[in-house]
Amino acid sequence: MSTAILAREQPAPERRPPDRRRIALHGFLIVVSIVWLFPLLWTIYQALRPYSETSNKGFLSLPDTLTLDNFTTAWNSAELARYFLNTLVIVVPAVILVLFLASMMAFAVSRYSWRFNLVLLMLFTALNLLPPQVIITPLFRIYLAIRAPEVLVGTPLAERGLLLYDQYLGMVLIHVAFQLGFCTFVLSNYMKTLPKELNEAAVVDGAGVWTTYSRVIMPLTRPALAALGTLQFTWIYNDFFWALMLMSTGSKLPITSALNNLKGQFFVDNNLVAAGALLVALPTLVVYLVLQRQFIGGLTLGSTKG
């Protein structure tokens, strides 16, 4: 099972290759790493150079000036701060909600046996692998059909009378629905590895289902939740398909879509777009570098099923 791998993860025992080969290996890995990082480094280099310089001297030239101007211009002219905020309003509730719902679902299917639990788990898993394009048209019509109750019309929850289309609520819900399958799958695998006696002990102590879930199982699932949360943050943050389809107010778009605003219709300044792209990528890069363990844990946790 996946989690068995996570649990067993330990410092690899030193199987030292002989010195000469080790140096060759380092040499090879260093070359590969440079090649791997190059496209990103090149983007950073272009972002540090002014448009006028690269358009006159060409992109492959030594710099006369290196400046952070492109970053400040991108930040200000594309109003990145606002779009970061928009993304936050979508990502944070979506990640919390999907982890909460998936953990309940996983708890119910992995810790209890009932008639359809396997069928449901299979359904969740299968739907999670679908290409999103398959569902977009009907989903769009469903979103258009759902009107807000009268009291909400005109409030930020339903500015123009619709509850889901062009609303953050709709974005949060589609992310949650689309990621539920994966999260349930991962968490149920994890919960299955917890000793079954935990449930029995809880029953002996007179705990109900809810208490067993919230007091016994959930605290033990924390590492998996952390790993999964990190992964989900990146995925939802990086999405641009749902926003493209289900939002129509320019100023409400999440950051990944806002990058388009820098790629102008008329004037294209690749140095500026490079700076913008890096700023947009920054949060995921930071999350990745800081929470690397969780991140990679989340991925292997979800996918290594044996």
Partner: peptide, 12 residues
């Protein structure tokens, strides 16, 4: 004014 990126405006 609700400004949407030119290309996205057309697509959508």
């Amino acid at each position: 004014v609700n400004t949407v990126e030119h290309g996205a405006f057309q697509d959508n």
